[in-house]
Design a binder for these strands. Structure first.
Length: 393
DNA sequence: ATGTAC
């Protein structure tokens, strides 16, 4: 589907791939971002776009000489990793429950963290620069060590999936945990303070920004890249443990060679070239989809997920959606659905079936097929996956 | 999303 050029009377146009007409507050949020003078060319909205803090979740912005820390958000480096195994779906028969229990034993979820820090964690090179991070997080190094290789809560998940060719995939969704959150909050506070001090006129206080070539910008950029690396590493550690669980259950403990692995952020910023110019690209709930890039677009815990290949669509800043997008808030989902609804909507998925998961019920999310149909000019589908095991925090 | 406070 082609995108729509929205005229929101802001300085920059907004190109929208949304599969719904924008609500008034969503349009205002898009216009606020597009009105900032340092925004490059236009703002791109992905098919799963919805209200966020400062900027829309499912939006991509390129900036010339400034960055908005609240637009990146607090779940720095959040993303997904998927691994294709040499196993076929039939091999999982009768083993799903045990696999789920093993996952829950091997990987801390929710509030839990690792009891001891293993050498695969301490070997990460990022620990060497921990002392260079914001002074406000220095007391949290032990916690960051124990949280490396832990899932967290909310929409974070661990899944075993089977694709349409019967191949078994491992997939998980997580970010930079407490340390990334704290780093982001420290810098968001600084940006707010600076804007207030300078009596800067902003359409929204959550759009306070840092200007390049200032100490505040450099400190934020450094910590942001560190947190993004931590998030990617966190997913790698969990994927290695998940792989071992599956090896134990399906291969008598013998290691297997992955046929493919994709590890992508969907909440982050990086330097990229667009329209011949090097700019800062912020993807807030969006996945990079440069020509040939592999990406992951997960549906809800009862729906399909997709491994995709980017088409390099330049108007989207080479991006695509990061998931289905919520249809209703967690609060409304809990009011709307019962445990019986949850059990019906997660039929065929080996997962916890208790009231604590009702806010993650598939009915609280948009159907993923509509989201995929809306971005056929951004990505092509490489594999279509359906989960048979799902672990949430 | 997270961690802490209410």
């Amino acid at each position: 589907m082609p995108f729509e050029k929205l005229d929101l009377s802001a300085a920059a146009p907004v190109f929208s791939w949304a599969n719904h007409p924008l609500a008034e507050n969503e349009a205002r949020m898009a216009a606020n971002v597009a009105s900032l003078p340092f925004v490059f060319k236009h703002v791109a909205l992905m098919p799963d776009v919805h209200l966020g803090k400062g900027a829309l979740v499912g939006s991509v912005l390129a900036t010339r000489d400034a960055i908005i820390p609240a637009a990146v958000g607090v779940d720095v480096g959040c993303g997904t990793v998927a691994l294709k195994t040499p196993f076929v779906g039939d091999q999982l028969e009768g083993k799903l429950k045990q696999i789920r229990l093993d996952i829950e034993k091997m990987i801390p979820v929710g509030m839990a963290e690792n009891a001891q820090v293993e050498s695969e964690v301490t070997h990460w090179s990022g620990w060497r620069s921990f002392s260079a991070l914001h002074p406000g997080v220095q007391r949290c190094e032990q916690k960051a060590l124990k949280q490396a290789g832990s899932l967290g809560g909310g929409n974070h998940f661990i899944e075993i999936c089977v694709d349409t060719e019967q191949a078994v995939w491992l997939m998980l969704h997580s970010g930079s945990r407490g340390i990334g959150n704290l780093l982001a909050q420290r810098h968001i506070d600084t940006a707010r303070d600076l804007a207030k001090l300078a009596q800067m006129h902003l359409p929204d206080p959550d759009l306070a920004y840092f200007v390049s070539n200032t100490p505040e910008f450099d400190a934020y950029w450094h910590d942001l890249q560190w947190a993004q690396d931590y998030a990617r590493f966190n997913r790698e550690i969990m994927m290695a443990r998940l792989k071992r669980v599956v090896e134990k259950q399906l291969a008598g403990g013998r290691p297997f060679k992955p046929l493919l692995m994709v590890n992508c952020h969907h909440n982050y910023a990086e330097r990229e070239v667009h329209y011949g110019e090097k700019v800062y690209v912020t993807r807030k709930g969006a996945v990079r989809a440069q020509q040939g890039d592999l990406g992951i677009i997960p549906g809800s815990m009862g729906a399909k997920s997709f491994i995709v290949r980017g088409k390099g669509n330049r108007e989207s800043y080479c991006s695509c959606a990061h998931g289905a997008g919520r249809l209703m808030s967690r609060h409304r989902a809990k009011q709307t659905f019962s445990l019986d609804d949850f059990i019906a909507q997660t039929a065929g998925v080996e997962c916890r079936k208790d009231t604590g998961l009702i806010d993650e019920i598939p009915g609280a999310y948009k159907p993923i097929d509509g989201v995929m149909a809306q971005q056929s000019d951004l990505v092509e589908v490489v594999a279509t996956l359906k989960q048979v095991v799902c672990v949430k925090g």
